[in-house]
Amino acid sequence: MTATPMKRSAVRLLIDNKAFLALVLLVVVSAAMSDNFLTGDNLLNVLRQTSINAIIAMGVTFVILTAGIDLSVGAVLALSGAFAASMTASGLAPWISVPGSIAAGAAMGMVSGLFVAFGRIQAFVVTLVAMTVVRGATLVYTDGRPISIGGGDVADAFWQLGGGYWMGIPIPIYLMFFVFVLCWAVLHHTRFGRHVYAVGGNEQVARLSGINVNRIKVSVYAIAGACAALAGVVLTARLGSAQPTAGMTYELDAIAAVVIGGTSLMGGRGRIFGTLVGALVIGVLNNALNILGVSSYFQMIAKGAVILLAVLIDSRSQSSS
């Protein structure tokens, strides 16, 4: 159980993970087409731009692994970001405002989860409602205007989370990798993670195996909410203010990243690494098309094509196996 699994996993990474292969291809093609792509600055730029979507998508991965869906993450991002901005503006230090916003996001997710688990309403419907309600609440809370994080030491410290650097690398990139390692550890090395897969694989089996299915369901929506809130913090910090319309359609990019990463919408199958790669595919694609001067209208079409292609390849390899 030492050398062979390692070697095999390296090969499998390439064969199994079409998203990873796509990412490598995309990077090679982008580098060939533009000299400006493969520069240190630009790569850090891509990673930083990707970090927000990646953080949201990793949370959404938990939900999708249980065969659920979360459409509310964009709205949760906006409201949590607004909370963070007003807390910062009122002088609360990041070590209060950040956990506070994340807790708020988790609570919003949890409410959705409660309706999905105990109310037995389809996740699509519950989170569609949550998306509308939370977005409305954001507009009410912000009165439709941006909330500035204000000035001073506290605001500067908060701003670091989005705009700061450590050892030449933007802070959001560290946060993205921190979330990745945490999610990976939880999914693959804890009982909870195994239970998430089991609930998505077959709820009835999970239940008869002594798993508290409702608790797992509530938890995954809370996790998605917490991740969305962290992304909201990063976005708010970077902009120096919370926008009431922040995060519109971010849920779609997050779901796209999860799907490109090979996680099945039917639940029970997928990996957090895939989601990270999926988010990078979207990020690199956007960046490359920008550098090449392709209009943002065409970028949307290109993104759609890539998602379709990824899912097509994935479903074919699934049916052939």
């Binding site: 897969y197 089991a198 694989g201 077959n202 009835q204 089996v205 029970g268």
Partner: peptide, 9 residues
């Protein structure tokens, strides 16, 4: 198949 095992796992 329905209640005993997660077949894909």
């Amino acid at each position: 198949k329905q209640s005993g095992l997660v077949l894909e796992h």
